[in-house]
Design a protein around this nucleic acid. Structure first.
Lengths: 206, 206
DNA sequence: CATAAATTTAATAACCTTATTAAATAGCTT
DNA sequence: AAGCTATTTAATAAGGTTATTAAATTTATG
């Protein structure tokens, strides 16, 4: 039943589909294209996954939920608030370096099909809200102690998310900018991560 | 030759196409759909604009270039560096409030079709590079005078672009977040603009 | 080996898309 | 009104897409 080739064909389709969906999005990717990349007949894509939509969901529902959960849940155990913020940024850049194309896909697909957002939200569970609550409580303590300027937790979270995610969202554009085009992505992102931490830490000072 | 109805049909097609392209992207929008929204026959779309690609270009090439130019060129004439930074952010939020869906379209379409980036770059002309140079020179002066911490102009520009653009890119997601869902977009963006200015100004302190 | 099950293929139905064409209609202009 | 042009329409060609089907092939198993 479950021979080696069978599993490897199914796996080949999954991998081809993931790569193509990430590079081109859902609408621009055809099952024919997926089959060609996986090195199999087009009907096989439907044999294993029935429909293109099911194949997409199979790949991305889990990926999306774990990504969102990891991303919002990267509130680290640092000794100081400053260290915890830096921990978040480091964690975000690690996650993003592993999935550089995922943010653009999320934006693109969720904008086109907002009902999918609900499934992501329910899938991510209560973790994000819980962690936001912890960040909020910590921030209030820091502000009360005079170590951080008065600000809302929501704005801090948006600052962090913006600074971390934007370089990956705008990568196709940034890659071509004169000052960046030469650099390797790894070096660029590593330097950017350090700069973001400096910006964030400095922005919190009273 | 150019009667009132003729121009209004052409205009109706342009407006329908712009709205649909912005909401759904290029690949998900069909000329049939455009015609339906414009209230005309599908062949008319091709009568006026020949191909779907030409229609898209006709609408967005100019829009894109002026958007990029405006966005990068919003280096205002403030009396102090701090004021100039705030001027940029205010300008960005004004531009974005007028074109809230454009950033996501740019990201989505340029990621799928990187060669279009070149046309945007050439269309934007030397303005961006020139203005970046001015920001860089000003920043160096401020750092030399000890009014701003040492940092690279590139990182400052990325800080600004990230903080300004992200809320619009992630709007479909953010709109559903518990703490934001209730608010009107205008209020949310206005509050965010103020918060971004505070974050940026504070992040520059030595 | 025989046979049953799983996998793979070619063929194709049904549908949608872009773009063109030729005919019909409307709008001017004289 | 006739004639010219511009606009609009219905029809359709050509091609691509998803998904199914039935037949062929491979693989597993008694």
């Amino acid at each position: 039943m479950e021979s080696q080739d069978q599993l490897s064909t199914e796996q080949a389709i999954l991998e081809a589909a993931e790569a193509l969906f990430l590079m081109q999005g859902y609408a621009r990717t055809s099952t024919t294209q997926i089959a060609r990349r996986a090195g199999c007949n087009q009907a096989l894509v439907h044999y294993y996954f029935r429909t293109k939509a099911q194949l997409f969901d199979r790949i991305f529902t889990g990926k999306l939920q774990s990504f969102v959960a990891e991303f919002l849940g990267a509130y680290s155990q640092g000794t100081t608030f400053e260290r915890r913020i830096c921990g978040i940024v480091d964690a975000h850049y690690r996650i993003l370096a592993r999935n550089p194309l995922l943010p653009a896909l999320i934006i693109g697909e969720l904008a086109a099909d907002p009902e999918r957002i609900e499934s992501v939200k329910t899938g991510a569970g209560p973790l994000p809200a819980e962690l936001f609550g912890r960040l909020e409580a910590d921030l209030e303590d820091e502000i009360a102690a005079g170590r951080v300027r008065p600000m809302q937790a929501r704005e801090l979270l948006l600052d962090i998310l913006s600074l971390d995610a934007f370089p990956f969202l705008a990568a196709p554009l940034l890659k071509r900018l004169p000052g960046i085009a030469g650099e390797s992505p790894e070096k660029f992102y590593a330097a950017r991560c350090e700069a973001v931490k400096r910006t964030l830490i400095n922005s919190l000072k009273p």
